[in-house]
Every structure is written in C-alpha cells, then in structure tokens.
Design a protein around this nucleic acid. Structure first.
Lengths: 337, 337
DNA sequence: CTGTTAGCGCTTTCAG
DNA sequence: CTGAAAGCGCTAACAG
C-alpha cells in the first residue's frame, strides 16, 4: 500500500506538500504539483479514505434505506427502479451507496451505518414506520425521503404527482365515454394512495360524475383480485376500473377474466406506476408512468445540496407523471358513432 | 461526538484501558471493564469506524456489484431477490453493503469502493465482462461470483444446479407424454444457459427421444416471443416448450396465444427461475425454482470465510433447484386412458 | 511556496 | 492489571 509519505519521499518533498498538490491547493508551485501528480499516478497512488475521513469527517458514503416488502411483486418493480436512479446519480457524484433493507417488522434497530456514522446522509424509501424515521432524525443526519408513507414538513420529501396522475387516468376514461369508474387501491393511509384517491374524486367532480362509495374498494397492496371481484358483483357494475398501482390492475385482469369479461371490450382498466410488466400483459395496460429513476436521481441531488448546506433540509419536490396509452381502454364514444 | 477519551476521563482510567474493555481483551479487570461498559452505554458511545479502521485495516464493508440489465424485466426479478439474500446475510454478520451497478457498456472503470479499498471483499453477479473481473482480481480483493457468465476455477463461484433443473423440466414433460420438446433460451454463451441446454439434451437421451436441431432456438434474453413464433411455424411443431428463463416462457405464452393456441391444451410450457410473475400468468407457469435468496446468503457466508482465511478462495458451491408444478402442462398420458 | 508540527480516534506494544 | 507512548494516513495551522 503506497501512502502519501512514500510519494513525498519519491518526490523529495514533505507529505503536506503532497497533500496540497493532490487536493489542488493554491499554495503549491505548478512545477512541484506536476511532479507529484506524475509520481502519484505512476505508483498508482490512492489516498486512504480512513486517514482522510478521520480528519475531515466526511465519509463519501450515502445510506439508502428501503423497506423490504413481503410480497416481492409489489415493492420491487417500483423501488428497484428508484434504486437504479439513486445508484447512477451517486456514482456520478462520487459517493458510495450503502444499502440497507428494512425488515417488515420494523424492529426499530438503527442500522449500523447510521449508528456508526458511516454515511454523510441518508435516503429513505417505502412505507417506513414513523418511529424509525424519528429515530433517524434524532441523529441529525441529513435525510431525504422518497415517496413517503405520510407527509411531513420536517424533512425533504420527493413526491410523485399522484393527484395529477389519478386525475389524468380518470379524465382519460371519462373522455372515452366511461361513466361508472371503479377505484381499487392499497390502504389509503399511505399518502400516495390517498392523493390518488383525491385526484380520482376531483376528476369525477370536474366532469360532473357522481362519486359513489360502493365503487371504491381499498385494502392490502395486492388484493386487486378480490377488490375487482367485489366490484364486478355489484348489481350495477363499473364499466372501468382505475387501480392505484399496476400490480393491482393486473390482478384485476385475472378477476375480470375469471368472470368471463373481455378487456377492454367488457371492462376497461387503467393502472398507475408503469412497471415493466404493464406492457407485457394482454392487453397491455394503459397506465400512469412514474419516472422512477428520476425520483432517485432528484433525491440524491437534493440530499447532496443539504449536505453541502446549499439548501434547507425541508420542503418538497414534485415529480411529474404522464399517461401511457396502451390497449386496456377502448373509446366508447368513437365506436358509438 | 463522544470519544474513547471522554469515556476514559469519566471512568477515570486511560484511553487504552477503555479500548481494551470495549474489545473484551483479557488484560482488564472485570470490575473496571463493567464500569467502563456502563459509562459507554450511558453516554451512547459508538466507536468511530475511521479511527478504528485506520488501525486494523478492516472496513466492515462488503461490495456488491451487479450488472445493470438493459431490459428491466430480465435482470431485476432474479437479481433483486439475490440482493435481498445478500443484504439479510450481511446485516446478520454486521457488514455494510456497498452497492454498485455496472452499466451495460462495461467501461472498465473500477468502482470507487474497490479503487479506494473501502470494502473487505466483493460479490459479483450477472453477466459481468471478463476484463472487469480480471481488473478486480488484480486488486487481490477477496471475491465471490454469483451465477457467473463463464466458468472459472480461479475464484469462488456460487452456481445454480442448472443441469439438474433442465433435466427435471424435460423429464416432467416426457413423463406426461410430450415427445417434441422445443428449447428456447438466451445466448448459450452464458454458462447458466449452456448448462441448461446440456440438461435438456441429457434428458432427451435418457428417455430415448431424438435431439432435433430445429427445435432449438436461442438468442437474446427476451426474444421469447420471436423464438416461440419460429417454433410454431415448423411443419411439425413442438408439443411443449422448455424456456431457460421464465421471462422467455411468458413471452412465449403471448406468441402461442397470438397463434390461436391454448395453453396447456395445445402446447405446454415449462420455465426456469420461478420469478414472482410466474404464478400470476394465466395459466400459472410450471417452472424450476431457483432459491435466489439462498444464492445470496451462501455467497456472503463463503466470502466471509475467505476474508477470514478460513477457506480457500476457489472452488464452487452448487445450489439445488426444484420443480414447481403449476398449470402450464397437462398430463397427456392420463387423459389418453 | 515549503516543511514542521500536531492531531483526528483508535489500538497496540511495552514498561511499570 | 493499568497507562504512557507511538503510530495508522492524512490534513491544517503556522513558521520559515
């Protein structure tokens, strides 16, 4: 292991001069700096992070904490994409990504990396328990939350434009002639779903459609099958279903098929998230695209700003969404002409 | 930030005694040790990793490097599960997980964590380029490879029992009366697929079925649609298809449907991997289950042994597989009676 | 512009 | 059994 001392000896200067040269300080002559840099590269010198960090109290590590979802289908396709966005952005900014997955039974144990202060900041994602968040915050660690379970003004949050996404979905259906639009969703206690519900109601109001309690079924993240079944058993069943996540929509497909209905001929579906699977189903699912990598990338950029004190550590960032048209909705109006 | 010095002062002993007490050295009296430990907990003392590591040259970090696949569907469902297995096992062993995803255009740049020696060892996964692996090995970093693209005896590999898996799949079909079994796969240059091909041929031989070149179609990871289509256009089309990964099988479903065939009535499918999606398709896919978390967990355990010099750094570990019976194959024999 | 000195927090001799 | 001293690799303050 070649150290700064070795380089100093080779360059016939003092270690501090080497340090200055390597860190592009201004109090070194261009000449010696060049010589030192040459030798450093020649000997493949890499500064020891631990020596460095002991001094500057910077780790160049960012912690990423996601909740591990029980059902692999629900959490993964979404969060693994967010993670990719985070990873790419961190790599660009020369940070290491230290990953920790939280067991579902949030046992409140603070992860090693936080306890031992091995990260300069942390990004949280998924339905993380409030107690855990409070624990982290008590450590005064810079932090950013991606798609939080509950809203808060006490730390930075990167949010999906859920309300608008839901509005777009319902609007799309209404404009194509659908009038009884079912709503199936995971627990509305989760902020994202709550906002999507709000967008759904808002669209109904804007288009003068009645809001009917019986068309709303919510519960577990992946109960789309049961939810859809319930809606289909109504005396006056919906002609379309808006699912607040794609996984639920896809389970809904199955319920519709089992009930002998053809999609989109007998019933239309619109999802939310645009997971990879959405375009592989038959028919491919019309859905609201969430820019998952973007969420991750913005989270990183904001966190870095907080760490560098360039930005206050609260406030929200809203990531836009977009409707992706596929084949799970037909245009009733066009066909009626 | 409370340091070992502070604790020393509070306990009225020297810093070195505190260090000994905290590390359960034997040259401290039980009495002082207890006192120190009490104070340490009372003041919520956590040793500074950087001070520690500067001394011991241990980082308590393990690097995990996966190749980021272009098509999210192919790599993710498999590797994100392996990653979960790795994470859980590392957490148990009190290591941090430092994640790095390799761009597809392996630009040969060594990740920061390796360059700066911030990890004690590294786990590689996915179709990683040979040059990159060589680069890492030149750093003399302990390493373990999960499901390697190419075999090697120069480092530890954690392998799936691919040959047996493929054998089981084909055997299952043969025993149910299938005689013309198509084989669709990603590139056979990838070791896992090559072994599955071997298992396929072996089973045919054991059951005295002819091996027919025209029934084998290989290529890109997710060309299952095209591959299946090609097989279905044969004058004498196969009565079953064995796909070396579930994603291909599921694309194959679509090709079969588009050709007006019912699964499993007109054609049977068996996949490989058992990704979460496999049981959600219609019909649910019979496939070979790979214990993905297990792969990750074993990788970690072996790597730790290598780091601790308890095990030589070469050799393979084979993870067993199992056939999961669902509804994409019917029993031709039973029905013929 | 350069080098000396001190110190980040911890561990490890080694003398007492 | 305890503590003083030295040092891991690096940086910063301050003389020169």
């Amino acid at each position: 292991m070649v150290t700064i001392k070795d380089i100093a000896k080779l360059a016939k200067v003092s270690p501090s001069t080497v340090s200055k040269a390597l860190n592009s300080r201004h109090d070194v002559s261009e000449e010696t700096k060049q010589k030192i840099l040459e030798i450093a590269t020649a000997y493949d010198f890499v500064p020891n992070v631990f020596g460095k960090n002991l001094k500057n109290k910077k780790t160049e590590n960012i912690g990423v904490i996601f909740r591990r979802e029980t059902r692999p289908l629900s959490g993964n396709p979404f969060y693994s994409r967010v993670l990719e966005g985070i990873e790419a952005e961190l790599a660009i900014n020369n940070f290491n990504l230290v990953l920790h997955l939280l067991p579902n039974d949030t046992n409140g144990v603070i992860p090693k990396m936080i306890r031992e202060k091995q990260v300069d900041g942390v990004i949280l994602g998924g339905a993380i328990h409030e107690d855990f968040i409070r624990n982290i915050r008590s450590k005064k660690m810079p932090m950013v939350m991606v798609d939080p379970k509950t809203p808060s003004r006490e730390y930075q949050q990167i949010l999906i434009d859920n309300e608008r996404g839901a509005f777009l979905a319902v609007q799309y259906l209404v404009e194509r002639g659908y009038k009884r639009i079912g709503f199936i969703s995971g627990d509305l206690g989760r902020e994202s779903f709550h906002q999507r519900f709000f967008g759904y109601k808002k669209a109904l109001k804007v288009y003068n459609l009645p809001f009917e309690e019986e068309l709303v079924v919510t519960g577990d993240l992946e109960e789309g099958y049961e939810h859809t079944k319930k809606l289909l058993q109504l005396r006056n069943r919906p002609d379309a279903i808006f699912a607040t996540n794609d996984v639920n929509a896809i389970y809904g497909y199955k319920a519709a098929e089992d009930a002998g209905l053809k999609i989109p001929d007998d019933i239309a579906f619109v999802g939310f998230d645009d997971i990879a699977l959405a375009k592989m189903t038959s028919p491919p699912l019309t859905t609201i695209r969430v820019y998952k990598e973007e969420l991750g990338s913005i989270a990183v950029r904001n966190l870095i700003k907080i760490i560098n004190d360039e930005e206050i550590s609260t406030g929200n960032t809203l990531i836009p969404v977009r409707l992706i048209e596929r084949n799970s909705v037909r245009d009733l109006k066009k066909e009626n002409n």
